[in-house]
Structures are given as structure tokens and as C-alpha cells.
Amino acid sequence: MTPPKRQRRSPEAVPPEPSEPAGEQGEGSQPERLYIITGQGDDDGARASIDLVTLIVARAEPPPTTPPEQSAVIGLCTAPLSVAELSAYLDLPFSVMSVLLTELLAAELVQARAPIVRSALPDRSLLEAVMHGLQKL
């Protein structure tokens, strides 16, 4: 039995997108990122540094003036918790979580522990540690 075959996409061979309803999007087939973001967290620099697997830890008791949604975050991360987990427990999309956390970081109410990201030169000892950890599963 022979399976269907993948065509590599070369820039000039990209077929027109037949599935795209005409007139919906002017600027090509790139799906738009259309989150509904509330709040003012407008400094993209700070927000960009928050990843789904950034670990968040509370630094302080929330002051009495802390808005309830921020208090809820602080209450959850007395022990380290990933942004993804916070998002799941609070039922908030990642984009909204980022805004909240940007505010909490600025207020120094939480601390962020950055993830280890894939770099141009992968870290062998990191991979060995992961393999060792998986072996124990």
C-alpha cells in the first residue's frame, strides 16, 4: 500500500489557497491573531518575556488594595507554577495572563523564573538531564 505524498512547499510553487473564503482577509492567508485583550499592558517588551512555561512565584502577600484577579494569581503561586497552569486554573487565556503578570511583575508581587529555550547550539547536558528524568518515569 502506498501512502499519499507530501509536496515540499517551495516559494514559487505555493498554490492559491482554495479553502480561503474570498474577501474575508485582505492581506493574504496568514491567520490573524485576534485576541481580546483587556487591560493596559501595552509595553510589548515586558510581555514578550512571559512564556507559557515561565515559572511564577509569589514574592509577597497581596496588599489589601490588590484587585481580586491579581490576588487570585498570587494565591495560586505560593509554590512555583507555570503560566500555563495559572491560565488553566484561572480559566484565562494566555494573552490575558500575560497582561496580569506584567502588572504583578512591575509591582514586584511575583517573581518570574525564565524557561530554558532552544538555542542555536542545544545544550547537551540539559538534554542528558531530560533523558535521565524520562528514564525514571
Partner: peptide, 18 residues
């Protein structure tokens, strides 16, 4: 808000994630 169960807490030593 229901948070993680006690046994689902990461240790305080958790430094980074991949």
C-alpha cells in the same frame, strides 16, 4: 478558583522549565 492539589505543587527549588 481551584488551584493545584497539594501533591501537584512544584518544589520551591524549581528553577526553570522546558
Amino acid at each position: 478558583v481551584t488551584g493545584p492539589r497539594a501533591e501537584d505543587h512544584l518544589p520551591h527549588t524549581a528553577q526553570s522549565a522546558v
